[in-house]
Nucleic acid binder design. Structure first.
Lengths: 249, 249
DNA sequence: ATCGAAGGACGGAACATCAAACCTTTTCAA
DNA sequence: TTGAAAAGGTTTGATGTTCCGTCCTTCGAT
């Protein structure tokens, strides 16, 4: 009897498949993602202290989750002091006053710092290029205002950082890609964990501000590649500092 | 009686929060993500026909999911003909022969084409820059080989596309950031849905190849900005074609 | 002939999510 | 003054996903 054809038998010049294909599938629950999203937005100051969140019944619709799931998240955020609820008509859920500075970065976070910086590079280079293509002049005027605020905050790092976040997220909004806005806020959240624990002398902030201005100028002139270059130089600053402080090349 | 202090009362110079904060939370299940990951890798040719997947008991450990969940995914992939299983010792799950070309792109996919291109821009610009910083010469030699294969495939778009994917994902691997590799494969999967349905005359492919060579040369010379520029020009080609064919500026 | 490595199947426990009510508090307006 | 409206707070049950462990079946290699 002739041997049955073996379906496995092939020429197979196959190159090695990227191991990333089999990498862990980390499946976030709706609850976790909601806490993360709202918590990050609050920590980054995108939701200002005292700001009122949309009503639960509206918010859960907007976020595409059940109200009970949203409430779990809000309960968690209220227990961690990021948010507080007021009952009755004209009540709502409000952003609490800024917390005493966050927890020190965990070893895991520190171990992934290079991945985080790579992710930031991806987001911010694209933001720079797309903003140069698409940003409306009005957006740029607003961002110039933020840059001015930055220049007045050289001595107060908390204020500086907050304005810096506004600038970067604002640029992403000006780039007109919702996904990039989400990615930008995520990445700023991740960076905050790293950035809060390294020194930021006023000279460094001042040179950052020069880069911000160059970046905005390039965007205004619709020069995408110059914007990208300015952004790349801007990001390298942080990266070099971290490379000096942390292990793992 | 004095009015009780109202916790909501503040100065509130608050700028508008980005609406992205309240955007829908799409929570993928482990099952869905697994099907997506493996299916995309197969459709992209990253897992070659005839290739054997790791054994179920090993794979579910690597992917951080239960074996029953993995089996659900494999069952789905086998029913869609992407994969087949062989029982017994030396058995396993194997990648099936290429399917007759995929489904036409859904209206939803087409509607999001710009977002997809933006995402690709983010991934690929970062890949270009990081590869220029970090790629090992051996990696670059391999990629030159792929570029050569591309130049011999001007008349066979299926083969061309497959090598193109290899080149881009390979560059991401050379950039040394696992997340970028994942993002690159995801983005190539999304682009495949768009790309398969537009014309690709040999002249266009030839000019793409020129850009590939420029890109690789810049990477080899460790000139990050030139690599970024080459990549940006490369991507713009597709984007202009799509902009001409599809609605929604 | 047997052993071992693979896929295949089952059952139950734990958990996440959803949907739809209903309750309580507070304010505003008739 | 009173009721309606708008908010958060609570409860319950149904549903679906995931996990874990166990066992069965197949079949090549020794």
């Amino acid at each position: 009897m002739a041997p049955a054809p073996d379906p496995r038998d092939r020429g197979a010049l196959a190159l090695a498949p990227p191991e990333a294909v089999f990498a862990p599938v980390r499946s976030y629950t709706a609850f976790e993602e909601t806490v993360e999203r709202l918590g990050t937005a609050i920590k980054l100051g995108l939701l200002a202290p005292g700001a009122r969140l949309p009503a639960e019944r509206e918010l859960c619709a907007r976020m595409g989750i059940a109200r009970s799931t949203l409430r779990q998240a809000l309960t968690a955020l209220s227990q961690s002091g990021h948010v507080f609820a007021v009952r009755g008509r004209r009540g709502g859920t409000f952003v609490a006053d800024p917390q005493p500075p966050a927890d020190p970065p965990s070893p895991e976070v520190l171990a992934r710092w290079r991945e985080t910086c790579d992710q930031r590079l991806a987001v911010e280079l694209a933001v720079a290029m797309l903003a140069a293509e698409r940003a409306a002049p009005a957006d740029l005027d607003a961002l110039d205002g933020v840059a001015t605020a930055l220049e007045g905050a050289l001595e107060d790092f908390a204020a500086y950082r907050q304005a810096d976040i506004r600038l970067h997220v604002g640029l992403a909004e000006a780039a007109g890609s919702p996904r990039l806005v989400r990615a930008a806020t995520e990445v700023q959240g991740a960076m905050s964990d790293l950035i809060a624990y390294i020194a930021h002398p006023p000279q460094v902030l001042a040179s950052s501000n020069v880069q911000h201005r160059r970046l905005l100028a390039a965007v205004r002139e619709r020069d995408g590649m110059r914007a990208v270059r300015a952004m790349a130089e801007h990001l390298q600053g942080t990266e070099h500092v971290l490379a000096g402080l942390l292990p793992g090349g």
